[in-house]
């Protein structure tokens, strides 16, 4: 195995306030890591920082992707290298169709290798396997999408853009049980020896569908515990309260 993502002592500020206070994390190729934690613990901050959101300032530490330092790279460069963020709240882009958006994104991601002639077929196939209606292609990006449609749309993009590292931010939130199953199956199909996934979630239930190799508990900007998938079950039973006390005590 080789290391895909290595985060060392990462400190991040948002508008002058420190949110992440020294995170270290290692994701090997082919692994799924779950990052769990209460609201406000910094889970979304980590995914946004890894994707290079300009509002999130790295004040200390290092992010290595395939051994390369990501910190100086802009969001689009990171995306073209194979990092993907499935958004918790994907934003609407008026007047831009899903097909047009996907074509442009795939061109950006794959450059010369993008098969323009195959695009329609590829898109149709990917939509079918996620149980998405064909009319989806001509709708405007996230415009008037239901919660479930937005999440399927994120996974659809992930399937088409073939990332090496997928950051999935609360992909389970707002999904009913059937949608959760379809979306999880979609993600599981993408799993393989090359893809690393960082699964950010508040609840354990997603992990019934997508089995993680490791679970980390994030509280107040620090990883307070790491373990195997059994840790998620423990959290389900006891909640985050014991860890929050730990933090206060330290």
């Amino acid at each position: 195995m080789s290391t895909l993502l290595e985060v060392n002592n990462l400190h991040v500020e948002v508008e002058g306030k420190e949110i992440l206070k020294g995170i270290s994390l290692k994701v090997e190729k082919g692994q799924v890591h779950a990052l769990m934690g209460p609201n406000g613990s910094g889970k979304s901050t980590l995914s946004n920082t890894l994707m290079g959101h300009p509002k999130y300032k790295v004040t200390q530490g290092q992010i290595l992707f395939n051994g390369q330092d990501l910190t100086p790279l802009k969001t689009d460069a990171r995306a073209r290298m194979g990092i993907f963020l499935a958004f918790q709240y994907p934003t609407a882009i008026q007047g831009v169709t899903v097909a047009n958006f996907m074509r442009t994104a795939m061109k950006a991601r794959f450059g010369e290798a993008f098969q323009s002639k195959e695009f329609r077929k590829t898109l149709k196939g990917a939509m079918a396997s996620l149980g998405v209606d064909e009319s989806f292609a001509t709708r405007y990006v996230n415009d008037g999408f239901s919660g479930g449609e937005k999440k399927r749309h994120e996974v659809l993009q992930m399937a088409l853009l073939k990332p090496q590292l997928a950051l999935m931010d609360e992909t389970d939130s707002g999904l009913d049980i059937d949608a959760l199953r379809t979306v999880s199956e979609g993600v599981n199909r993408l799993r393989g020896p090359e893809l690393g996934i960082l699964l950010i979630t508040h609840y354990q239930r997603l992990l019934n569908y997508i089995q993680p190799d490791a679970v980390h508990v994030l509280v107040d900007g620090r990883i307070v515990r790491s373990g195997g998938k059994e840790l998620a079950l423990e959290l389900e039973a006891k909640g985050y309260a014991p860890y929050e006390k730990e933090t206060v005590a330290s």
Binding site: M51, H53, P54, K74, T75, D76, R78, A79, R80, F84, L85, F87, P90, T91, I93, F101, T104, A105, A108, R109, Q157, L161
Partner: peptide, 11 residues
């Protein structure tokens, strides 16, 4: 919006 599109590789 910019972040969303750029996170898909668009300049």
């Amino acid at each position: 919006q910019l972040f969303y599109l750029m996170s898909r590789g668009l300049k």
